[in-house]
């Protein structure tokens, strides 16, 4: 709300002398790149659908159709679960990296970024090999009736892997900046370790944690490569929405494909907006 009023206030447009001039140029380039890269492709997607489909068709084919609905549920549900897992374990990794100097710390720190660089198909295949019922890990779980690869847990694991760096890299600087005095103050006031953690540390770094969560979630919703290999891709069961788009395209049903794309786009936008509001709320005490 505050940024909104600041946008509307005339102060931005009044020429104030600055150390670094060039507002016009940089703003122009920003708008140009955002338009070319984001606005035109996404706008085109919506326009393409809107001109070739009635609202009723859109509703019946891209929203309530059972196979599509199952794909949405899986895509968003698994992504949410993966982001949640990342929030917990990413926080732990960041905590260990910041708080406890240990031998090989630099190595572990570098390892965190690996999922960014690895082609996701590679990680998908690797995970599948491990977790398949005959794989190194899968074979120990199969007798218990636990199926990871070719089932939804496999999808969650793959999405967790590719989203991990976001949470770690967001939380790490926040933890580094956290003054030890805050913990000492809490302890001197009689707080237990657990109370110090959830009443002082967690709320202080919550905005960073939420940002990491959001990025991990957004990345997971769009992921395709690794899931293609680990999911098994059974309709209604382990078929994610991006894969369904590909299937529609292969059947030359371009309108159907873009319609799913539009739904994904709108849902992602709505979810990101909610999380952003949550983040603003959690950081409301900041300047």
């Amino acid at each position: 709300m505050r940024t909104f009023t600041r946008m509307l206030s005339p102060r931005l447009w009044v020429r104030t002398p600055r150390v670094l001039p060039g507002f016009g140029l940089s703003m122009g380039l920003t708008l140009l790149s955002m338009t070319l890269l984001v606005l035109i492709p996404l706008g085109g997607l919506i326009l393409f659908t809107a001109t070739r489909m009635t609202l009723v068709e859109f509703w019946e084919q891209a929203i309530v159709e059972p196979r599509v609905l199952a794909a949405y549920r899986l895509s968003f549900g698994a992504s949410f679960l993966a982001a949640l897992l990342n929030a917990v374990f990413g926080f732990l990794v960041a905590w260990v990296l910041v708080r406890y100097p240990f031998w090989g710390q630099r190595f572990v720190d570098a390892l965190v970024d690996l999922p960014f660089a690895l082609p996701t198909a590679v990680s998908g295949i690797a995970l599948t090999t491990l977790y398949a019922p005959t794989g190194w890990i899968g074979r120990w779980l199969a007798p218990w009736g636990l199926q990871i690869a070719y089932a939804w847990p496999g999808i969650v694991i793959a999405l967790t892997l590719i989203g991990l760096p976001f949470v770690v890299r967001m939380v790490q600087p926040a933890l580094e900046q956290l003054e030890e005095e805050l913990e000492e103050a809490a302890a001197s006031l009689g707080a237990t370790r657990w109370q110090t953690f959830y009443r002082v540390i967690l709320p202080t770094i919550l905005p960073s944690l939420l940002t990491g969560f959001t990025m991990a979630f957004a990345r997971a919703v769009g992921e395709f490569g690794s899931i293609y290999f680990i999911a098994g891709n059974m309709p209604y069961r382990t078929e994610i929405a991006p894969l369904l788009i590909l299937i529609r395209l292969e059947q030359f049903d371009y309108v159907g494909a873009t319609a799913i794309g539009v739904v994904m786009l709108l849902a992602a936008f709505a979810l990101l907006l909610i999380i952003n509001l949550l983040q603003w709320w959690s950081g409301r005490y900041r300047l």
């Binding site: 003054e179 000492e184 103050a185 302890a187 001197s188 009689g190 002082v200 202080t204």
Partner: peptide, 18 residues
């Protein structure tokens, strides 16, 4: 420290900003 019954005031206040 939490069991000693001391009130401690820090140079940089160490207030909980949230």
């Amino acid at each position: 420290v939490s069991q000693r019954g001391v009130g401690f005031v820090f140079q940089h206040y160490a207030l909980f900003r949230h």
